[in-house]
């Protein structure tokens, strides 16, 4: 248990691997011996699928141990459960909570009362980050697998969201407390992207929006970075006349049919083109005045072992 609890909010465009990176970040922290809560807020059960465990209930449970003796607990935050818990915590509403549910108030508050849903979701993360036992914080860090880049600023700007509505009252008070935490030194918003046009553009827009809203931007985490497999010399050779014949001859001792040479050369050109596109997108991120860290593409796909591998590169890159 530490002296403060750090909050890491992980966002990213759909399909960029936001949940994977959030999980790797949680493991990287646990590897340093920290006690970490990894939570998701979108009801997708992405964490359970990633760790190959049954769907997570509204209850914090341990799903992994870090190499350094730390632990990762996971929680799927459900806004309805969070509301009832919140009411119970502040108003000791046992039966009245059920009454609210019966009248559809819980459903109303968590779905159409604007902004309330987001306050409840961020509010639960806030509660976990501020929770103490025996005078010390229960968690050293809370990692949130947050909504996608396009919605993140609005999601985190809970204060503005409820501003038009509740001018007084506990929801408003809660929103203010959450805002204080999000604007403080103990919070970071990380943006996950891949090196393609649209995700990179959305990431750059996201960084600008977050900064305008006064929210602390952490790292841009570039996921699925493909390694360059052709050396500089090979790339030059690839562009010369007669390269297909030369490759066909060179294939001889390998046991591979020399007839494959033209196809292999074609794949080589495609590879070079892809690396160039990747590099061009990377330059856009490098110019954006925000720390960038690359995460390698793993050819086998993502399993628990891969998460530990990604966690290691996050530590090497001093992201955490």
């Amino acid at each position: 248990m530490g002296a403060t609890t750090q909050l890491h909010v992980v966002t990213g465009k759909g399909g960029t691997g936001k949940t994977t990176v959030a999980a790797a970040l949680a493991i990287a922290l646990a590897d340093q011996g920290q006690r970490v809560l990894l939570c998701e807020v979108e009801g997708r059960q992405g964490i359970a699928q990633l760790f190959d465990v049954p769907p997570l209930p509204y209850e914090e449970r341990r799903i992994a141990s870090g190499l350094g003796g730390g632990q990762v607990h996971a929680l799927a935050i459900d806004p309805e459960a969070a509301l009832l818990e919140y009411l119970d915590m502040y108003y000791h509403l046992g039966r009245a909570g059920k009454l609210l549910d019966r009248f559809g108030v819980v459903d109303f508050a968590t779905t159409i009362a604007p902004g309330v849903r987001d306050v409840l979701l961020t509010g639960k993360a806030y509660e976990a980050a501020r929770r103490k036992e025996d005078g010390r914080f229960v968690y050293d860090a809370v990692v949130m697998d947050a909504p996608p880049t396009g919605r993140i600023t609005r999601f985190l700007n809970v204060n503005a969201e409820v501003a038009g509505l509740a001018k007084v009252g506990p929801v408003r008070k809660q929103a203010d407390a959450i805002m204080d935490m999000l604007h403080s030194d103990t919070s970071r918003v990380h943006l996950v992207t891949v090196l393609e046009e649209m995700p990179v553009q959305e990431t750059l827009d996201g960084v600008t929006e977050l900064r305008l809203a006064g929210l602390p931007v952490g790292h841009v985490l570039v996921n699925l970075v493909r390694p360059a497999l052709l050396s500089e010399a090979s790339q030059q050779l690839l562009g010369t006349d007669g390269v297909e014949q030369a490759v066909a001859d060179a294939l001889e001792p390998s046991g591979v049919d020399a007839g494959h040479a033209p196809a292999l050369v074609e794949e080589g050109h495609a590879h070079v083109a892809r690396q160039h596109l990747q590099d061009a997108q990377h330059v856009l991120l490098d110019d954006a005045d925000v720390p960038v860290h690359d995460l390698p593409w793993l050819s086998e796909g993502v399993d628990l072992g891969a998460l530990f591998e990604l966690a290691q590169t996050l530590r090497d890159g001093k992201v955490v």
């Binding site: 050396s231 490759v247 060179a250 292999l264 050369v265 794949e267 080589g268």
Partner: peptide, 22 residues
């Protein structure tokens, strides 16, 4: 096959790397 071509001349290296790409 790529490993079998390791340590050769420039063309061999190209072929080995192309096999890695594939």
């Amino acid at each position: 096959a790529s490993r079998r071509l390791a340590g050769g001349d420039a063309t061999s290296t190209l072929a080995a790397e192309l096999l890695c790409v594939h």
